[in-house]
């Protein structure tokens, strides 16, 4: 045991000193910066990957937005076109119905006018007939005063002369 210890003193002494020295120096000069650098780089890479992921998600969002906008625009256009068609259809229908009622109204007016005219004409005719009748009656009365036969002729002639319309 003593012989063993005798050979071991030196290595124990020197390894303690040198290991402590190398541990302290390496910690300060090597492991500190190395581990720090590795950690920083890993964080950087993680950060970059996350940013890329976010950017991709954003692009996807944008694309979805665009798609949605396009869809909306298309729908709007369709709606507008439908509205316009409806409007024109309605306009045409309105115009048609207006024209019809107007035409009917004008026909009615014309009819009324015609009826009025005819009534006026009939009234005129009646008045004329009455006037004629009076004239005839007057002539008849005058004729009668001359002779009976001639009165009869006159009446016949007069009636055949006056045509009722």
């Amino acid at each position: 045991m003593e012989a063993f210890l005798n050979t071991v003193y030196g290595t124990v002494f020197w390894s303690t000193i040198s290991f402590l020295v190398v541990l302290v120096l390496m910690r300060r000069m090597a492991w500190g910066p190395i581990l720090q650098g590795l950690k920083e780089r890993e964080e950087e890479i993680d950060g970059a990957l996350n940013t890329a992921k976010q950017a991709r998600a954003e692009i996807e969002n944008l694309q979805a937005d665009n798609e949605r906008l396009l869809q909306e625009a298309r729908a709007e256009r369709d709606g507008m076109m439908r509205d316009a068609r409806d409007m024109s259809d309605k306009l045409i229908a309105d115009a048609k119905s207006t024209a019809k009622t107007e035409g009917e109204r004008m026909i009615d007016q014309a009819k009324q006018a015609i009826d009025g005219e005819r009534a006026a004409a009939v009234a005129d005719l009646k008045a004329e007939v009455a006037k004629l009748s009076l004239e005839i009656a007057e002539k008849l009365v005058r004729q009668e005063l001359k002779d009976d036969g001639s009165q009869q002729d006159l009446i016949g002639r007069m009636i055949s002369d006056s045509k009722l319309n």
């Binding site: 003193y9 190398v22 120096l25 492991w31 190395i34």
Partner: peptide, 28 residues
């Protein structure tokens, strides 16, 4: 007490010298 720089101690010194040559450079 035998505190000689024996063969193993010298070997240790060589290794430590190598480590101090290599790793601080990597650190920087």
């Amino acid at each position: 007490y035998d505190l000689s720089i024996s063969k193993s101690v010298l070997g240790m010194f060589i290794v430590i010298f190598m480590m101090l040559l290599i790793f601080p450079r990597v650190g920087s």
